[in-house]
Deep mutational scan, measured.
Amino acid sequence: EQYVVVANYQKQESSEISLSVGQVVDIIEKNESGWWFVSTAEEQGWVPATCLEGQ
Score class of each variant (00 low, 15 high):
Glu1Leu: 13
Glu1Asp: 10
Glu1Lys: 14
Glu1Arg: 03
Glu1Val: 12
Gln2Phe: 08
Gln2Gly: 11
Gln2Ala: 06
Gln2Glu: 05
Tyr3Trp: 05
Val4Ala: 12
Val4Thr: 15
Val4Asn: 09
Val4Phe: 11
Val4Glu: 14
Val4Ile: 15
Val4Met: 03
Val4Gly: 06
Val5Cys: 10
Val5Tyr: 01
Val5Gln: 00
Val5Trp: 00
Val5Phe: 01
Val6Pro: 03
Val6Thr: 12
Val6Asp: 05
Val6Gln: 07
Ala7Asp: 12
Ala7Lys: 13
Ala7Pro: 01
Ala7Cys: 06
Ala7His: 04
Ala7Glu: 11
Ala7Tyr: 14
Asn8Ile: 03
Asn8Asp: 14
Asn8Gly: 14
Asn8Gln: 10
Asn8Ala: 15
Asn8His: 10
Asn8Arg: 13
Asn8Thr: 14
Tyr9Cys: 02
Tyr9Lys: 02
Tyr9Asp: 03
Gln10Ser: 13
Gln10Tyr: 05
Lys11Tyr: 03
Lys11Leu: 04
Gln12Leu: 08
Gln12Ile: 07
Gln12Tyr: 05
Glu13Tyr: 06
Glu13Leu: 08
Glu13Met: 13
Glu13Cys: 07
Glu13Ser: 08
Ser14Asn: 15
Ser14Tyr: 11
Ser14Phe: 03
Ser14Gly: 11
Ser14Trp: 08
Ser15Gly: 11
Ser15Tyr: 11
Ser15Gln: 15
Ser15Met: 08
Ser15Phe: 06
Ser15Asn: 11
Ser15Lys: 14
Glu16Val: 00
Glu16Phe: 01
Ile17Asp: 01
Ile17Cys: 14
Ile17Gln: 02
Ser18Tyr: 02
Ser18Ile: 03
Leu19Arg: 00
Leu19Ile: 08
Leu19Val: 12
Leu19Pro: 01
Leu19Gln: 01
Leu19Met: 03
Ser20Lys: 11
Ser20Gln: 09
Ser20Tyr: 09
Ser20Ile: 09
Ser20Val: 11
Ser20His: 13
Val21Cys: 13
Val21Tyr: 04
Val21Ser: 06
Val21Arg: 13
Gly22Asp: 06
Gly22Glu: 02
Gly22Ala: 03
Gly22Arg: 03
Gly22Trp: 01
Gly22Val: 00
Gln23Arg: 04
Gln23Phe: 02
Gln23Tyr: 09
Gln23His: 09
Val24Cys: 12
Val24Gly: 08
Val24Tyr: 06
Val24Phe: 06
Val24Lys: 15
Val24Gln: 07
Val24Ala: 13
Val25Lys: 01
Val25Thr: 03
Val25Gly: 01
Val25His: 02
Asp26Phe: 06
Asp26Ala: 12
Asp26Lys: 14
Asp26Trp: 06
Ile27Val: 15
Ile27Ser: 04
Ile28His: 12
Ile28Gln: 12
Ile28Ser: 05
Ile28Phe: 07
Ile28Cys: 09
Ile28Trp: 07
Ile28Lys: 13
Ile28Asp: 04
Ile28Tyr: 03
Glu29Lys: 14
Glu29Ile: 15
Glu29Cys: 07
Glu29Pro: 00
Glu29Asn: 14
Glu29Gln: 15
Lys30Thr: 13
Lys30Asp: 01
Asn31Glu: 09
Asn31Leu: 11
Asn31Cys: 14
Asn31Lys: 13
Asn31Pro: 07
Glu32Trp: 04
Glu32Cys: 08
Glu32Gln: 13
Glu32Leu: 06
Glu32Ile: 11
Glu32Lys: 05
Ser33Thr: 11
Ser33Lys: 15
Ser33Gly: 11
Ser33Leu: 06
Ser33Glu: 13
Gly34Glu: 09
Gly34Tyr: 03
Gly34His: 05
Gly34Arg: 05
Trp35Phe: 13
Trp35Gln: 14
Trp36Leu: 07
Trp36Glu: 02
Trp36Lys: 01
Trp36Arg: 03
Trp36Gly: 01
Trp36Ala: 10
Phe37Met: 11
Phe37Asn: 15
Phe37Leu: 14
Phe37Cys: 09
Phe37Tyr: 15
Phe37Trp: 08
Phe37Pro: 00
Val38Ala: 11
Val38Gln: 00
Val38Phe: 00
Val38Tyr: 00
Ser39Leu: 05
Ser39Glu: 14
Ser39Asp: 10
Ser39Trp: 04
Thr40Ala: 09
Thr40Cys: 07
Thr40Glu: 05
Thr40Leu: 13
Thr40His: 08
Thr40Pro: 02
Ala41Leu: 12
Ala41Tyr: 07
Ala41Met: 11
Glu42Thr: 05
Glu42Pro: 04
Glu42Phe: 07
Glu42His: 15
Glu43Gln: 15
Glu43Lys: 08
Glu43Ile: 08
Glu43Phe: 06
Glu43Arg: 10
Glu43Ser: 14
Glu43Trp: 05
Glu43Asp: 15
Glu43Met: 10
Gln44Cys: 07
Gln44Ile: 07
Gln44Pro: 01
Gln44Trp: 03
Gln44His: 11
Gln44Met: 09
Gly45Met: 02
Gly45Ser: 00
Gly45Ala: 02
Gly45Gln: 02
Trp46Ala: 02
Trp46Ser: 02
Trp46Asn: 05
Trp46Gln: 04
Trp46Thr: 04
Trp46Arg: 08
Val47Gly: 03
Val47Asn: 00
Val47Trp: 00
Val47Phe: 07
Val47Glu: 01
Val47Tyr: 04
Val47Asp: 00
Val47Ala: 10
Pro48Met: 01
Pro48Asp: 06
Pro48Ala: 02
Pro48Val: 01
Ala49Leu: 13
Ala49Asn: 14
Thr50Ile: 08
Thr50Asp: 10
Thr50Arg: 13
Cys51Ala: 10
Cys51Thr: 07
Cys51His: 05
Cys51Trp: 02
Leu52His: 01
Leu52Thr: 00
Leu52Val: 12
Glu53Gly: 13
Glu53Asp: 11
Glu53Pro: 02
Glu53His: 09
Glu53Ile: 05
Glu53Met: 09
Gly54Phe: 09
Gly54Tyr: 12
Gly54Asn: 14
Gly54Ala: 13
Gln55Met: 06
Gln55Lys: 15
Gln55Tyr: 06
Gln55Ser: 09
Gln55Glu: 05
Gln55Asp: 13
